[in-house]
Design a protein around this nucleic acid. Structure first.
Lengths: 192, 192
DNA sequence: CTCTAGTGAGACATAAGTGTCTCATTATTG
DNA sequence: CAATAATGAGACACTTATGTCTCACTAGAG
């Protein structure tokens, strides 16, 4: 039984990352597929995560940490609302797949939970609100919409390079997503 | 065995629409769930669609028709590129769920197919290109990106009202999505 | 080298969904 | 009202994924 040696830790991470990658695009995928992607036998997978829900829980915990880290790096409380918004967008686009997972897991949770508030989400709401008041963010676009539409762009940047058949690569998608998000959110889009 | 009476036709449509709604949000959902949503027994479902793939194929065919209809109503070849783009966005947002299905099905198809070209998609590409040349659409945003980002907004408008826990309703989401899309695509966003 | 943590292979019982079939019942329509 | 179209209920064999377990092996730390 693995405890916390270096090898065990490495294996655990490999399974976790494979799980995020596989289950994000196909939540019902067989665990055997996750194990294969992680380069590990099905037995070993079950040794680390007793069942499907345990794997998902661990993945969500990891993703939640990444989510908070991103928000911290964006320094949401500094500068104008729009400047913080720009920093947030660029940071988000640098941790694509794990944040996609986070988004999906919170969407699932919101279906049944007593709406326990996400502190990070509230910080982002406050940041956008500040942008509304300081006149740097378009007042016609609501806090909720702006906070959500970022996720839509994340999703596209993540999936487009594969689906478009090479017509658009990851770098281009990232650039255009940022431009799209900033133009849309800006109170004065000509200043870009 | 149902052939083509009014009752049979009605049942078929009910199953098809239930299938689109259920399988769009959860592709691996049991067919029993589709049957229940359609208000029909599992036996009846199998009478109309022998297996899962038959149901999906029929749904995709229906969605493809809706897709072409939307493009026609948008009159892609009329006016400036941006005017046509605006018409397309508003039309797309009026047939949400079935178009979400279409998007997902084409994404699946693109994974393995010999890239058979979608005529409607090409018309849209030409429309955006026209917008680039006549100076009404932002030249820094590529045809591929603009064509794709519309889908991201569709997805959000479709899911947000349910996920946000009533914080944002369908009407608001639609309005803000249109504003977001138009501001982003416009060569001159101040003219909105 | 030796011992042990870590792993893979595979058997196993179980659960859930699938697709087919039969038979009885309900709607429709002519 | 009769004849037929359409459905529902349920049994059935089959498939696939799951989670548990045992046993043999391998690699790395002491």
């Amino acid at each position: 039984m693995p405890e916390s040696s270096s090898a065990a830790e490495r294996t655990r991470r490999a399974i976790l990352e494979a799980g995020i990658e596989v289950l994000a695009s196909n939540p019902g995928a067989p665990l055997a597929e996750v194990a294969e992607k992680a380069g590990v036998s099905r037995s070993t997978l079950h040794r680390y995560f007793s069942d499907r829900s345990a794997l998902r829980a661990a993945a969500t915990e990891l993703a939640g940490q990444a989510w908070r880290d991103v928000a911290n790096r964006a320094r949401l409380e500094e500068g104008t609302g729009f400047e913080a918004y720009r920093r947030l967008c660029t940071e988000l686009l640098d941790s694509l797949s794990i944040l996609i997972w986070w988004w999906a897991s919170t969407a699932d949770a919101a279906q049944l939970n007593p709406e326990e508030p996400d502190e990070t989400e509230e910080r982002i709401g406050a940041m956008i609100d500040r942008g509304h008041r300081d006149g740097t963010i378009d007042p016609q676009l609501s806090v909720e919409w702006l906070a959500s539409s970022v996720w839509a762009m994340l999703y596209m940047v993540h999936h487009l390079p594969a689906e478009s058949g090479g017509k658009i690569n990851g770098f281009e998608a990232r650039q255009q997503a940022i431009r799209t998000l900033l133009k849309a959110a800006a109170a004065d889009p000509t200043a870009l």
